[in-house]
Nucleic acid binder design. Structure first.
Lengths: 345, 345
DNA sequence: TTGAAAGCGCTACCAG
DNA sequence: CTGGTAGCGCTTTCAA
């Protein structure tokens, strides 16, 4: 990295003034702090004369006054922060889109969405760390939050706890993503098309297991009591890893593979094709998540679609729960997994 | 679902417990609030007897006490929150990875990273909204923050403001991403390979212009005073849009295209191939960002690589700036854009 | 119409 | 060793 020198100190930077408070504004405007608060918050219960308002606004602007959110919500006894722990792995396209929509929708309902960078804490410790921020609602992606964690959050004032996972958690609203169903659908599809020696890709990446484990379990489940075999195929998201796996293909003797998701499927499919494996003749491939890229591959990638909730619907669920915290937790089954059959299987 | 409001506290049913405070813990443990604070924070300057410690810990656990972060940092006068406004578009793979690394690295330095869901605010209003949280540092992705914004943040206590953009902003540390250079490199590459009628894809998606505009400008710049022409090609990230654009290809008479990034390149390349356009013979294609998927396409996608900063380096920059807020803003040129020539151009 | 003052939860100083 | 207490910045009665 290159360091670029700063412009000369001809423009002397002002001494590190401390940050202005409403008291400073009041002093400068020659009014009381109460008046400042009334003016800046447009409090309708109180009428302030126009000249005073102007003086306050001018003083605030001159000082660069910005209210202190923590002090405000401490006083108010509540905030409108919705906390979302950041996922333990870099977000995929599906999740990014979802978070984006969710944030937009909640912003429109006047909440502030905050993604909290996980500090490597787990379980109840993580819940406690989140609870310190006193969010009005918490949306937890993936498993890892137990009933005690929910309790911690609620006891520290969270009016809604929502989990986005495949398991229900006592006391929390649940958006149930049917990851087992994804695996089950994929395996059933391959079986129905006559495949019997079925590989299941499991990402090497840490943190991915929150999805890959149930997907694998679902596949196993679907093939229980059949004559099909399931072979677990660890795969890292790199060309090398894919090439290595593809090189073993003849030895593995598989006639089909469920590749965890469309991205891993694409990676593996390319490596297989480079090894001369014909798809779908020699080996059928199916992915999951129905990403756009799957439609761009040749052969077109079969996939299992699983809908994430629409950001707007989820935002409304959160809002409802916040306004009505006593209500029984809702559990929503997200649209069941469905196979989208294209050309690769 | 029906909600049953909590009954008044006269009944013995789950009283509407309010959130326990350190005063509650003190009362239950039979000590003062000060002692509670000492015990729970392991204050080394004060020695508390072992039995007292235990009583406090037990009381805290029994009540499910979690300290109130806002109150604490209000009292302390500072926090260790690093604020990162969420980008206005769903994060791409490059950015997700970067954020993930950055969060991890800062967590290890004992900061709390928070991604703040954009409330649709712009410019100084956005800066003010961020400033309300009194973060110790702010990392702003993309342009949109002016010198006044930086000033607002600093005046409200931010000890470091870092921009991740292609332009330097007065007063802020800068990580300069050479988006112009991306466009310039791509165009120069195409020109050097004999192409003269050059298309430049510009995403239709809102918010993407923060990158697409400089990339286009760079391409134009590189071809100024040459015999090459630049044609702007709006494209949405959908198959339909790509098909539409590809259908017009003969009319456009282009011999090459810089497709904004690898994902748009993949989309367009597929549509062109489906129209019978040969790549690179009829039309050369180059993307950008050097995503893995580009290597998986056939022909392999040429691309322009632009390095994002390593999360760890950036975390250290932030830490340095926080500890030494008086220091001159650093500006780091991120690795210049370099063409990775593969088979599509 | 404006001001004085209480108090949100917490920590740190100073007495006891 | 422990407790009393001031005060961080803000809003909101209640009085003037």
């Amino acid at each position: 990295m290159v360091q670029i020198p700063n412009p000369p100190a001809s423009t002397q930077s002002p001494a590190p003034r401390s940050v202005p408070t409403s008291a400073d504004v009041a002093r400068l405007a020659g009014v009381s702090r109460a008046t400042v608060s009334y003016v800046l918050n447009n409090t309708s219960a109180v009428r302030i004369s126009e000249p005073t308002r102007r003086r306050v606004h001018e003083a605030a602007k001159e000082l660069g006054y910005v209210p202190h959110a923590a002090a405000r919500s401490l006083r108010a006894g509540h905030s409108r922060m919705v906390l979302m722990p950041a996922p333990p792995v870099p977000a995929g396209p599906l999740y990014s889109q979802f978070v984006h929509d969710f944030q937009g929708a909640l912003s429109r309902l006047d909440y502030t969405v905050v993604q909290y960078g996980a500090s490597g804490l787990r379980g109840d410790d993580a819940a406690r760390a989140w609870a310190e921020l006193r969010p009005v609602a918490v949306l937890v992606p993936g498993p890892g939050l137990g009933p005690e964690g929910v309790d911690i959050l609620k006891r520290s004032g969270a009016r809604a706890v929502v989990t986005l996972s495949s398991e229900r958690v006592e006391g929390a609203h649940a958006l149930l993503m049917d990851h087992d169903g994804v695996g089950r659908s994929a395996a059933t599809h391959l079986y129905a098309r006559g495949r019997r020696r079925i590989g299941v890709v499991v990402p090497d990446e840490r943190g991915m297991d929150m999805f890959s484990v149930p997907r694998l379990a679902g596949a196993r489940d679907a093939l229980r009591d059949t004559d099909a075999t399931v072979t677990v195929l660890p795969l890292a998201f790199t060309e090398e890893s894919a090439a290595e796996l593809a090189a073993q293909w003849p030895r593995l003797g598989l006639d089909s593979v469920f590749a965890y998701n469309d991205e891993y499927a694409m990676l593996l499919m390319r490596a297989l094709q480079d090894e001369g494996v014909r798809i779908p003749e020699d080996t059928a491939v199916i992915g999951a998540d129905d990403l756009l890229l799957g439609r761009l591959l040749r052969p077109r990638l079969s996939t299992v679609r699983i809908a994430l909730p629409f950001g707007r619907d989820l935002a409304e669920l959160v809002d409802r729960a916040v306004r009505n915290p006593g209500a029984a937790p809702e559990a929503h089954e997200l649209l069941a997994a469905t196979v989208v059959h294209r050309d690769s299987s």
